[in-house]
Simulated assay, not measured.
Amino acid sequence: MKATDARSLHGHVVRELGRRIVVGDLRPGDVLPREEVLAESMEVSRTALREALKVLSAKGLIEARPKTGTRVRPKESWNQLDADVLSWRCASMPTDDFIEKLVEMREIIEPAAAAAASRRRTAAQLSKIDHAYRQMEAAQNSDEWAVADLSFHNAVLQATGNELVISLFSVIESALGMFFVLSAQTAGDFKYSLPHHLKVLEAIRRQQPEVARKAMQGMIADSQANLHKKRKGSAKKLPTLRSK
């Protein structure tokens, strides 16, 4: 499920209530205020509120029961792979926990994806990876770099030719985006990892699966080491990304 557009009225309610549930301000078993009270407190119409509650119900966060009202569901019922839920959870984690879990997820997915991309990529897919690399090379600031970095990793997943792997990007996009922004902001030189990306690109270009796998593993390990090293003397918080 794609991230909810927080700019709409019901999107604003989805984001605010969803965030409160995920961070624990509203706990499993808690009953939400009556519809008219909740709508007034959030300064939205009851129609917008109902639409928002439908979205949150689809994400597994709440359920409406006759006579007992709308309750927050247990965490195990939440759709943890929903783009919004994942984003809210990552944003609420202590930064070190976020880094460890993201690194572990990347280690499972991305080296294998790089190897698969090197075996199956088409000329057009290689061109997209190369274009993203050139955007990273030309980035003038850390924000531009993070956007290009995300495009690079998306292009690698697309080049696997595996629709199940490709679909993972929509799930992990928000979390990866936070990771890349944090990494770029933390690094003294936000382009420090450019050589690692070039190694991945060239391995995919030359169709060398094991070289691509090892290059991606090296990139992930290097970014983890950089973040841990830089964080020893700082308390930098996770960046907040707006839902698309």
Rank of each mutant, 00 (worst) to 15 (best):
V72E: 14
G161Y: 01
F98Y: 12
D189G: 02
L182T: 01
M178I: 13
A124T: 05
E76L: 05
N141E: 12
M136N: 11
S183F: 01
E100D: 13
A64T: 15
N141C: 02
M178T: 12
R73W: 11
L126T: 00
P66K: 15
A148P: 05
H131A: 09
V171P: 00
D143P: 11
L194M: 07
A91W: 08
I129M: 03
D189P: 02
G69Q: 06
Y192W: 03
R119D: 04
D149G: 00
D96K: 06
K67L: 14
K67E: 09
P66D: 15
A184K: 13
I172W: 05
L164R: 14
Q80H: 07
A64R: 15
A83E: 09
V156D: 07
P195A: 08
F179H: 14
A83M: 05
P94M: 04
W78S: 01
I129Q: 03
T186M: 13
R73N: 13
L168P: 06
S167P: 03
P111K: 09
D143N: 11
A116E: 15
K101P: 00
V147M: 11
R106P: 00
I109H: 13
P94C: 07
G188C: 03
D143E: 15
G177M: 11
T122C: 05
E137M: 02
S151A: 15
R119Y: 10
D97C: 13
S87I: 03
D149H: 11
G69T: 14
G69H: 05
M136Y: 00
A175F: 06
F152I: 04
I109R: 13
K101Y: 04
I172T: 07
